[in-house]
């Protein structure tokens, strides 16, 4: 028996895959189509065509402030996650210490625990320290939930990497630091990039943590979106959503381009 899919079984699997894609993408397409609807209410199918909702949204101070805050927050969160996650992954894979495998699973726990609970716990902890800066609190909270993504992707690329490469570099005169920058990092770049992407996106659309840690002055996009939704549910909400979706797609494409190119060179 060959490993290739053939016959009826193959077609069933293709159909399931197609259905799954539609299931994932259809809601996004609905939102995007409603955002150009020429009516004051959110209705599907959309009526007419207008870009006026986009014009309105892009003049909305609250939304633009939130967008900027979220972008800065997501970027800083990504950097923070990398600073913590890459060394942690390195220690977990290359080190040998007591409780290593236990720690490996513990480090992923923020992915398992309900974020709502994590957020509340963080709020209590941070306020008991007297940390009143919402931006700092948001950054800390977001790093807590995003660093595990970086650890996870970097751990798997480190495990795939040939350790002899590091040893060869060391015998050729490279210190541990130089070995990391010149040999290890280029090898695990796809894992680092994937982890960064996860960290950025998770931070950018995080609601359950931000809900506890934000205040009225500093609210990230998902909170503003939610508030808008509760107040007036007009097509400006789908317009905001569409802008976010498009930003995400552009981000992924850029990253794929960067990492993809590098990989093509390496392999």
């Amino acid at each position: 028996m060959s490993g290739r899919l053939e016959g009826v079984g193959a077609w069933v699997l293709y159909c399931v895959t197609a259905a799954m894609m539609i299931f994932i993408l259809a809601p996004l397409l609905v939102v995007m189509s409603v955002s150009v609807s020429d009516s004051y209410f959110v209705t599907f199918p959309p009526q007419g065509f207008t870009l006026s909702w986009y014009a309105k949204v892009l003049q909305d101070r609250d939304f633009l402030d939130a967008l900027q805050l979220s972008a800065v927050l997501a970027f800083s969160t990504t950097m923070g996650s990398l600073l913590l996650g890459v060394p942690a992954a390195f220690a977990l894979v290359r080190g040998s210490f007591l409780g290593q495998s236990f720690l490996k699973s513990l480090v992923l726990s923020p992915l398992v625990f309900p974020a709502l609970v994590t957020g509340l716990a963080l709020l209590q902890l941070l306020s008991s320290f007297g940390s009143g800066d919402a931006r700092l609190n948001l950054l800390i909270g977001h790093i807590v939930v995003t660093a595990p993504y970086v650890v996870r992707t970097v751990v798997s690329s480190l495990q795939l990497m040939d350790i002899n490469l590091e040893e060869a570099a060391r015998t050729l005169g490279a210190s541990r630091m130089k070995t990391f920058w010149r040999v290890t990092l280029p090898q695990i770049a796809p894992g680092v990039a994937a982890g960064s992407l996860f960290a950025f996106m998770v931070s950018f659309d995080n609601y359950p943590i931000s809900m506890w840690l934000a205040n009225s002055e500093y609210s990230p996009v998902p909170l503003v979106l939610m508030r808008q939704l509760v107040n007036v549910f007009d097509p400006s909400v789908p317009a905001m959503s569409t802008i976010i979706i498009l930003l995400a797609v552009v981000g992924v494409l850029i990253l794929e381009r960067l990492v993809g190119l590098r990989r093509a060179v390496a392999i």
Partner: peptide, 30 residues
């Protein structure tokens, strides 16, 4: 890295992201 020893590995351990010349120049660069 301070012993100045040349070592050959069974799986060659060439740096895949560097050209042949860059691989050989690595130790000199260090």
């Amino acid at each position: 890295h301070k012993r100045n020893i040349g070592m050959l590995f069974q799986n060659y351990a060439l740096f895949p992201h560097m050209t042949v010349a860059e691989n050989i120049a690595f130790g000199l660069d260090m």
